[in-house]
């Protein structure tokens, strides 16, 4: 097996970590829901964790592993404090929208206005479909009125 012969070939893990980081970056830049923005930040942390462990394997020591332990710790703290702030922001505006706070922007930045945003969703929501259990028996409408006992 080639992997055993070259234990330090970690390009694959580094590429996966980079992709996860970029996904989180794009998410935090584009999405407007505060909760989804924080999920994207956590995704970036996951990409960093994968890269750190890969580097640890490359160098054959445990420094990367120890750093990932601290990443986990700081992520837990960050999530606790950030979610408190998100809840406070929601209590003030009634929305989880980051654009609800655009009165805090710089003076030369133009105000963002949602144009052509339909009131209802244009894409129909996809709900989970449950397989019906059992089969409904075929109803015989002509026999129905002549039934004696209900």
């Amino acid at each position: 097996m080639l992997a055993a012969a070259f234990p330090s070939l970690i390009h694959g893990a580094l590429v996966v970590g980079a992709v996860l980081f970029v996904l989180g970056l794009v998410g935090i830049l584009t999405r407007r829901n505060l909760i989804v923005m924080f999920l994207s930040a956590e995704l970036m942390l996951q990409g960093i964790s994968v890269s750190l462990v890969a580097w640890s394997r490359y160098h054959g020591d445990f420094g990367g592993h120890a750093l990932v332990v601290f990443v986990l710790t700081v992520a837990a703290c960050e999530a606790a404090v950030a979610l408190v702030f998100v809840l406070q922001a929601f209590a003030r505006t009634g929305r989880l929208d980051s654009a609800a706070w655009q009165s805090l922007r710089d003076t030369e930045v133009p105000r963002r206005i949602d144009r052509e945003l339909p009131a209802t969703d244009t894409v129909a929501p996809v709900w989970p479909r449950l397989t019906p259990s059992g089969v409904e028996p075929a109803r015989d409408d002509s026999a129905e009125p002549s039934r004696e006992h209900v």
Binding site: L29, T30, R31, R32, N33, V36, G94, R95, L96, D97, S98, A99, R112, D114, L117, A119, D121, T122, P125
Partner: peptide, 13 residues
């Protein structure tokens, strides 16, 4: 809030 909020249906740039 109930339903899909309008700001979840758009994204910045």
């Amino acid at each position: 809030p109930t339903g899909l909020a309008p700001y979840d249906r758009v994204s910045n740039e």
